[in-house]
Simulated scan of single mutants.
Amino acid sequence: MVTLGDLAAHLGCEPGLADASIELDGIAPLGRAGPRELAFVSEARYLDALKSCRAGCVLLKSEWQADCPVPSLCVPDPYLAYARLSSLFDLLPASVPGIHPGAFVDASVKLPASASVGHGACVEADVVLGEDVVIGPGVHVGRGAQLGARCRIWPGVVLYHGVILGDDCVVHANSVIGADGFGFARRVDGWEKISQLGSVSIGDRVDIGAGVTIDRGALDDTLIADDVIIDDQVHIAHNCVIGRRTAIAGCVGMAGSTEVGEDCTFAGQVGVSGHLKICDNAHFTGQARVIGAIDEPGSYSSGTPLAPTKQWRRNAVRFGQLDALQRRVVKLEAKLEALGGAASDDE
């Protein structure tokens, strides 16, 4: 339970005419929120719903306050304010410092008293753990890995040897950080594996979703900079470099040695070819296929839009005819130019 005064203090704003002692137990959507719940309005299209709202408090912009029948807090960005307050209502169970009897922690590990290691976890030799680190059940932390302060590693995560995480990182369940990159040299009779001699280095405040795979580098490290956010089921191949504050949505795949700038966004299922550079502030819509370097900031899209199957089949056939059609157009243009030139000579 928190009070409206607590919320205002957390946001650094004033409760205005509202009663600062109002108690709130949670956050709910605007149309469902009751007298002990917080709601928010982030867009003008929801103002009609605001008029019948029953929430205990609403986060909104000052120009919308006149339409609000319940107590409110005025903020410049209601959605950002909601994000900042959400942690006050989080039901995440508190971690218990110490090592669970069912866990294994090597004697060489530097383990702060504030750290928590869950049942079935394995922490190998020479690992360094920061203050308030939480290692969930069944996590494997490989030899020589380093985890900064307040990192939380959810159940089933595997951190290979030598992996480095900065402060305040989150790695969700069943992600694998530091597996071998896909490095092989062709032999006459098959493939020769290339030992992956680099590691993975992750900055501060990086949030990694469930089922993510980030491969270790072949020679240099794979690098994930500060404040990057990565959704579920993403694959980042060896030696990729991801710039600060970049956001990567679910099912994105990045081939090896891709270099991504700062403040980029990748929507779901974007595919990125390897050995290319992407500048700062480049944004890719869903299922875009990035096959070349991106030098200019902006939004990029590709792919075939959804269509009825019969229409799609006809278009697919025509797509296969484009090369022949283009050649015919070039020949026709050449003939027209020749005819035009001949007409000019006759004048």
Results as ranks from 00 to 15, higher is better:
Val127Gly: 04
Leu339Glu: 11
Gly142Gln: 00
Pro155Arg: 07
Leu223Asn: 05
Ala39Gly: 09
His100Thr: 05
Leu24Arg: 02
Gly243Val: 01
Ala49His: 03
Ile164Ser: 04
Gln326Phe: 13
Asn174Arg: 15
Arg318Tyr: 10
Ala324Cys: 09
Ala8Asn: 09
Gly144Asn: 11
Pro97Leu: 02
Ala94Pro: 09
Ile153His: 02
Ile153Glu: 01
Pro155Gln: 02
Ala39Tyr: 02
Ala113Pro: 04
Val241Met: 08
Asp232Phe: 07
Gly98Asp: 12
Val212Ser: 03
Pro29Tyr: 06
Gly148Asp: 03
Trp312Gly: 11
Ala33Glu: 09
Pro297Ser: 02
Ile278Tyr: 00
Arg54Gln: 15
Pro112Trp: 10
Lys193Leu: 13
Gly340Val: 12
Leu47Met: 10
Leu165Thr: 00
Val170Gly: 01
Asp25Cys: 08
Gly303Met: 13
His238Arg: 08
Val139Pro: 00
Pro15Ser: 11
Thr309Val: 09
Gly341His: 15
Lys61Glu: 13
Val241Phe: 05
Ala342His: 14
Ala316Val: 10
Asp132Ala: 07
Asp280Gly: 06
Val272Phe: 04
Ala307Val: 05
Gly183Lys: 03
Gly120Gln: 00
Asp48Pro: 12
Tyr160Thr: 04
His283Ser: 13
Gly118Asp: 00
Thr258Phe: 05
Glu259Trp: 02
Ala66Lys: 13
Ala149Val: 06
Pro93Ala: 06
Asp126Glu: 13
Val272Pro: 04
Asp132Lys: 15
Gly162Asn: 08
Gly268Asp: 04
Gln65His: 15
Asp6Ile: 02
Gln326Cys: 07
Glu37Lys: 10
Gly181Cys: 10
Lys61Tyr: 11
Ser114Tyr: 09
Val200Asp: 01
Asp220Thr: 09
